[in-house]
Amino acid sequence: MDKDLINSLGDELYSAFLTRSTITPFTERDLDITLEQAYQIQQRFIARRLEAGETVVGKKIGVTSKPVQQFLGVYQPDFGILTSDMLIAGDNVIDLDGLIQPKAEAELAFVLKEDLNGPGITAMDVIRATDYVVPCFEIVDSRITDWKIKIQDTVADNASCGVYVLGDVQGDPRKLDLTLAGMVLHKNGELYSTSVGAAVQGSPANAVAWLANTLGELGIPFKAGEVILSGSQSELVAVQHGDELECNVGGLGRCKVKFSGRSAV
């Protein structure tokens, strides 16, 4: 696969993102894409967003739970890049008209106070370099028709990242049990699911260490101040106009998000 093809596939994703449309999965096109090529397509997709004026604000980690890894047949996480327009701040209301086929995931976000330069990074380094953790929702979205993704499709599509919101509580990871902290998710006031930090790679700090080491090998910077969405601790939640979600992390606190606009696909 040559550079031109990689660029044109990245451009295709960027165009789908701009027009809120979906494209045929790359893995159904007889292209035989490798994971490495999929990340190159992702880089092109993100480069187009940066050219349009956005900046890199962090990373997201995906494919961190056993059920999702089994579904995709991949036994390690993936990652995507968080850009400045993805953070929905203020009242935490998500406009569904700005997304294609969104679903919500409850997670823990890490904010770094020091660079994490892999390889050689352990979970202990992650705790040391973390300024604070915060409960959050990632609203995943797919530019691939009907979410018919294989691992190469989702990696190329920036790990299916959409937008995210952060809670307004910040916790010191030295005072928390990241592995055993419960994750309680309510949808419209009713209990939706419960989980625990260990659902993410045994501990969310393990997922962040994996990311630091993977980025180090790829030569991608991982800087102080970046936000890392460490991986879903809930099932994917379908959302539509008027829905309200709240997640509550044991020892830390809550994050709330509301949805407005048309019904989700």
Binding site: L180, A181, G182, V184, S195, V196, A198, N248, G250
Partner: peptide, 9 residues
Amino acid sequence: LDLPTIGAV
């Protein structure tokens, strides 16, 4: 304790 958010494995 905040009993509802106690995680268990």
